[in-house]
């Protein structure tokens, strides 16, 4: 266990963490703002990469391919949203249905289980080759800037009348309808926006690793939740502003990849990582619950007067 192996891995930890941060921000929109656990993302996290790869190989310019990936994610979100609102299927099940359907769709899109997008052949935006280079092409820099731009755009959007109606829907759907908000529309819109970001993240990941794979999204929702929750547990006391909360998600994502790397460095292999990830999320979800439980017990014992 040479500590240098871990240190050498840090740049790639930052790059991957930032790529997944975009995905985690998408999860934050559904899980925290809309108050819906959207499992579509496990599928969308492969769809974005698949669409990007196919478009790129077909000769589309990179910005267009990225846009295509974004729209494919929005389409997936639209399907889940319509399953939920128009068909009355519980949100969590609607997401599972779309996720399952996307597996076939992703195979159809790529025509095989994976597809290479080689940085030598195409003028990709980012590549893992450049992760230690001190140039403007370094993925840490490029993705970092993208994350900041996305956070800025979301900060603006959720401050608008339309964005506020999305937040209201997640906060109190009854009240929202009483105030004239079409909560079906806002839910669908939120799911589309969220999955669009997830697909964008997927397209960046496909470039970074040099290929899109039908399994690249497996467990994505849990990684997204891990990032959201790690960010909240560690930073919610300091970060109150909405933009800073999104930054906390990005930091949570990077920390998740740091833990991931440490665990691998300690000798576990990548196959064990789903188990480790699930345990990390379970622990971080349990901490607030235990804290609340312990604190209420403590006040009861103390005989608090102002109940």
């Amino acid at each position: 266990m040479n500590i240098m192996h871990l240190v050498n891995a840090l740049p790639s930890v930052a790059a991957q963490g930032l790529i997944w941060a975009i995905m985690a921000i998408g999860v934050y929109i559904t899980y925290r703002i809309l108050d819906v656990a959207d499992l579509t993302v496990d599928g969308t996290m492969a769809t974005g990469g698949a669409v990007f790869a196919v478009l790129t190989v077909a000769g589309a310019p990179i910005p267009l391919a990225l846009l295509g990936a974004f729209f494919s994610g929005m389409a997936a979100g639209l399907v889940t949203g319509l399953f939920h609102t128009a068909c009355g299927i519980p949100a969590i099940l609607a997401g599972i249905l779309t996720q399952l359907a996307l597996y076939s769709v992703n195979l159809r899109v790529m025509g095989s289980a994976n597809m290479a997008v080689n940085g030598m052949q195409y003028d990709l935006l980012i590549s893992s080759q450049e992760v230690t280079s001190l140039s403007i092409r370094n993925p840490i820099f490029l993705v970092g800037v993208s994350v900041l731009v996305i956070i800025g755009a979301l900060y603006w959007f959720f401050g608008t009348e339309l964005g506020a109606s999305l937040r209201a829907t997640g906060s109190n759907a009854n009240m929202s309808r009483a105030q004239g908000i079409d909560t079906n529309f806002t839910k669908v819109l939120g799911l589309m926006l969220s999955n669009g970001l997830v697909a964008l993240s997927s397209a960046l990941l496909a470039q970074y690793q040099g290929f899109a794979d039908v399994n690249m999204g497996r467990g994505a929702i849990v990684i997204g939740l891990a990032a959201v929750i790690i960010g909240e547990v560690l930073l919610s006391r300091v970060f109150h502003n909405f933009a800073l909360k999104l930054c906390a998600v990005a930091i949570g994502s990077i920390l998740y990849y740091l833990v991931y790397q440490v665990v691998i460095w300690l000798g576990l292999n990548t196959n064990d990582m789903k188990l480790v990830t699930a345990l990390i999320v379970a622990v971080f979800l349990a901490i607030p619950h235990w804290k609340g439980h312990y604190l209420t017990r403590a006040t009861k014992k103390g005989g608090g007067t102002d109940a």
Binding site: E161, L162, A164, R167, N172, G180
Partner: peptide, 23 residues
């Protein structure tokens, strides 16, 4: 009311009742 939103934001939501919510 929307518990996770500010008092003024709640009022602003109500002030737009019956209008199209724009950007």
């Amino acid at each position: 009311t929307a518990p996770t939103m500010q008092i003024e934001e709640n009022l602003a939501l109500a002030a737009r009742r019956g209008q199209r919510r724009s950007l």
